[in-house]
Design a protein around this nucleic acid. Structure first.
Lengths: 200, 200
DNA sequence: CGTCTACGATACGGAGCGTATCGTAATAGG
DNA sequence: CCTATTACGATACGCTCCGTATCGTAGACG
């Protein structure tokens, strides 16, 4: 993970960057196809055209590979919107997310990782740092801009507001009782904006 | 599960009801201690003082045993409130839930099962029927009573309202970014009631 | 006492994890 | 060119755990 950057620092055979990419691509594909629970490192290695030992030289566990394979793509699908007002930002952010998880491949990857995190404290920390915090930092920025504009009350609990906006979607994703549609995301945003007392 | 009820219908040695209880108790304990991912059927059998085959005679998978061991206790912790108004009902329901999942044993059991459901379609169906639907039926009843009382607009999308009230809590439980407190549940209820346009 | 079914004990095949070993390939420095 | 160093592929290994099969025994009924 991570190039060491300093050239000339190696003394032996250098690590194959092609192997890194091949492993991450294979992991991403298998994660999307079967979900993390049904994906094995041995499969990942085979599809990447690499020995299993080569995978374990770079990552410590199945979940770690899957996380690395997933994070970049997932975050790239959710850029920070800047529409000039809170409602526009939230709608855009939530619709980007809705579009992403409407792809069954992405949804399987995401729910599979969320599942693995529940029983693996080490992976849970990585998940928090690499996924939850970056995404919540973005969400928070949308609300902070709204505070600067005077759209919402300075006393608003932004963390609660974030959970109100994005919690229901994740809840539907994980419990699968109802689909996540644009109508749903719009209803959520409208209700929350009224609920926290937005003044446009 | 389930006694067949009809006496005299058996011709051989009857099933040990004590074994059923012992297995479910052992499963519940191990599920709470380690979480489903780190619990094994062999451990359950050993702690129940029963052969592994006896477990598989009654349940089809690890998740099925855990679900049975968990469902009754979990639902018993969440009776349907009836305070006479929507706000009181929602606060009571959400606080009962908060109290339940504040017990790390219950939280581990719950998140472990939610995790397992993500990768097991058979268990997912059982989870839906035995947990999600019963709980959502109760939540729905609270809103339907509110509709009868004229507290909320007849055009309200009750399914969305339910996800608005209970989604944020489950989201915090699964992603663990912030704790679920009574202050949190109260903020959520207040915001949602305003958001969906309640008239008390 | 014979029949029937559940039980405990045990063995088994298989998947998959993560580690260890070892000979070979690729690079840097002398 | 030669050697030290590191990564690689192939392979084997020990381990845990799953879910199934086998078999002799225990407990119920007629």
């Amino acid at each position: 993970m991570g190039t060491m950057g300093l050239p000339g620092a190696h003394r032996g055979r250098p690590r194959s960057e092609g192997a890194d990419r091949a492993i991450l691509e294979a992991a991403a594909a298998l994660l999307a196809e079967r979900g993390l629970a049904r994906m094995s490192i041995e499969e990942v290695a085979a599809r990447a055209g690499v020995a299993k030992t080569t995978v374990y030289r770079r990552w410590t566990s199945k979940g770690a590979v899957a996380l690395d394979a997933f994070v970049t793509r997932y975050l790239a699908l959710q850029p920070l919107p800047d529409t000039g007002n809170l409602r526009g930002d939230l709608l855009k952010a939530l619709r980007n997310w809705r579009r992403a998880v409407s792809d069954p491949l992405i949804a399987r990857s995401l729910t599979g990782l969320i599942a693995e995190v529940q029983g693996d404290p080490v992976l849970a920390l990585a998940w928090k740092v690499r996924v939850v915090q970056p995404i919540r930092d973005q969400w928070r920025r949308m609300f902070e801009r709204a505070l600067d504009r005077g759209e919402i009350d300075p006393g608003t609990d932004v963390e609660v507001a974030m959970d109100l906006v994005f919690g229901p979607g994740y809840h539907r994703l994980v419990h699968r009782h109802l689909p996540v549609t644009d109508g749903f995301t719009r209803s959520v945003v409208d209700a929350v904006l009224v609920g926290i007392g937005t003044r446009p």
